[in-house]
Design a protein around this nucleic acid. Structure first.
Lengths: 144, 144
DNA sequence: GTTGAAAAAACAGAGGA
DNA sequence: TCCTCTGTTTTTTCAAC
């Protein structure tokens, strides 16, 4: 991982579908050299995946929430979360609650409906997201 | 947005760098037709961006945490968060706390260091992430 | 790491259901 | 409107260095 690798990853952070040829022009290096660096970054596992980022709003999901959950039936609860399309992220956490999940629903009513269904597993505390300040920070933009 | 668009977005969810020609083969449709559908999905804003997903662990960030924060100096606090590379996501929320942030640090000690710096803005409650059950769910996999 | 040629993919226009 | 077909340009791959 040198500065050139960091530059490649920064370009991909802005647009993961950028052609390698365009990247090679921007960093003044031959195209096969960039291809080889990319291959190594993928092989090392530094690059996990290339994802498309969709707009929840445009897909009709107008409510975002984080839900903290306390449960004793962990395996069943995890299965429930995996099978609930509204639950897009799930973390085990320390603290009074042992799970945190990110939820996308059409309305606050559909969020309430999900919470009703989850109540059999334990109890929850809900943080409604009023607005997102940022969520796409480049991991490499670190002042060292 | 029909079933073909959904299929295109599902393929891009798996690999955002998949060539259009490969997608067109998988959905049995001509390459220019897929190109045009992609262009419209981008134009409509359904596709927000194409991102590369990096491994925090491979980049030396071994601690993930969610921090709830209560502050009265919102603009200054947001600026502080934007300028802190460890803070990768920031949301305004309802409830006792008015912010929630996702933090990636090298160690728990560097997390403590960040919390020390943030204390001037208010007070916080920390949820350390013990493990991630999932965080890449396809938004379109909804049983309707 | 570079160059250069062959293969593949993306693009842009014409025309059809 | 949405698609296919086709020719041109661009990108990728792969060889040799």
């Amino acid at each position: 991982m040198d500065q050139i690798d960091a530059k490649i990853l920064s370009l991909l952070h802005e647009n993961a579908r950028m052609p390698i040829s365009e990247m090679s022009r921007m960093i003044a290096m031959s195209q096969p050299a960039v291809t080889e660096r990319l291959r190594k970054l993928e092989e090392q596992g530094i690059i996990n995946a290339y994802r498309v980022q969709l707009s929840p709003q445009k897909l009709g999901m107008h409510t975002t929430a984080f839900v903290m959950f306390k449960t004793n039936s962990c395996p069943d609860f995890i299965t429930f979360c995996e099978e609930s399309p509204e639950i897009v992220e799930l973390y085990r956490t320390s603290g009074e609650y042992n799970f945190l999940m990110k939820v996308l629903t059409e309305t606050t009513a559909s969020l309430a409906n999900l919470l009703d269904k989850s109540n059999v597993f334990g109890f929850s505390s809900v943080l409604i997201v009023l607005s997102t300040a940022f969520e796409d920070k480049n991991l490499l933009k670190r002042d060292k």
